[in-house]
Design a protein around this nucleic acid. Structure first.
Lengths: 209, 209
DNA sequence: GTCTATACTCCGATAGAC
DNA sequence: GTCTATCGGAGTATAGAC
């Protein structure tokens, strides 16, 4: 059982994840990916049908758990508050933290990759991304308008876009800027600050007027 | 003077701008661009040395005027306020509006292209972008900390990143979301709303605490 | 189920005629 | 300054052996 055949698929996904983050999703070649995975060039086509199939699979494996955690946390929070109204800051935290946790996951290329997926315009990525995000967006919009009763639906949508933009920009921050944020040198420290900063910035924006 | 030879360079830049926006900067091929510009494949190499040279030239031609307008508007505003303290909302407006005006410029692909340039990680783009943005960022940070005296430099930098993220996300909004923002059907209308929405959202965030 | 070998297309860049 | 022709290489995908 040193190298069971089922592992090839996982090695390909891991290698693709890293290559997509480092070189770009479209730029990374199947030759690079299969070489890094110590698999044959034909393996991608065998396991995923095409490069688009591989891309879709990497995306779902990455974003699926994040969104599942988001939904779980909102459900827990709503259960905790009997009136179903979750304080705004807490709600934003449940949306933002599952993504920001990736900074501390040890797989430091993940934030870059999430940013790349969000800004990719190819149909394969855009459609999969929309399908994966749709339930989460609906759920949070609903909760958001309960937390801030004065919000109209248009404003909630637009400001939600602003928040996502701020989050994504945070994910692609270069290391030099990151260093500015942390007095000490621990790598997992800025994430905490960043989460608090993002939450207070966006909460103020959501509440305005 | 129907087609003076000097025009080829301009046609190449225009064609590249459109192709970069529609297909992606790395994905767009010189063959597509030169065909659209009704020029020869070798023309790009002759006029710009390489594809990277073309990319840099498109970027500078696009972002240069925007940043020049930003600096001019800040200078005008600081001259208007004798104490050199510009109200926060006005300052943000001077930073955001030159970019958002691109929605009404008739060249509707420009917002997408700006977003692409910002998220591109190739050295040719990243270095040029950093060089072009550096003076503007410095100038606005300075003004920002005067407009909001309680801001630390680290916070100003980080929140500035949040604002840029929100702006860029706005630039890549898909048309369906855009339609939600405007009751009437005019295409230049959402830009006005969007600017106001961005300014109030970010101003609240900058002022918090 | 996995690999070898290869097919076919397209890329950016250059050499040299005009 | 602009064109034609072509180079060398890399891209994805497939056919067929094992």
């Amino acid at each position: 059982m040193a190298t069971p055949p089922a592992e090839t698929r996982e090695r390909l996904l891991d290698a693709a994840e890293l290559a997509f983050a480092q070189e770009g999703i479209q730029q990374a070649s199947l030759r690079t990916i299969t070489a890094a995975a110590q698999a044959n060039l034909a393996a991608v086509n065998y396991h995923f049908g095409s490069k688009d199939g591989l891309i879709r699979e990497v995306l779902q494996r990455l974003v699926g758990p994040i969104n599942a955690e988001r939904l779980q946390r909102v459900s827990d929070a709503e259960a905790k508050y009997a009136d179903k109204i979750v304080p705004l800051e807490e709600l934003l935290r449940h949306f933002l933290e599952p993504t920001l946790q990736m900074f501390a996951s040890g797989r430091s290329h993940i934030p870059t990759l999430i940013s790349r997926f969000h800004h990719e315009t190819s149909p394969a990525v855009a459609e999969t991304m929309a399908a994966v995000l749709e339930p989460v967006v609906g759920r949070f919009l609903q909760a958001l308008m309960r937390s801030v009763p004065s919000l109209t639906i248009e404003r909630a949508l637009l400001r939600g876009q602003f928040m996502v933009g701020a989050l994504l920009e945070t994910l692609s921050l270069n290391p030099e800027v990151l260093k500015l944020m942390q007095p000490a040198g621990v790598d997992s420290l800025p994430r905490l600050n960043m989460l608090d900063e993002l939450v207070t910035f966006c909460a103020a924006g959501f509440r305005h007027e």
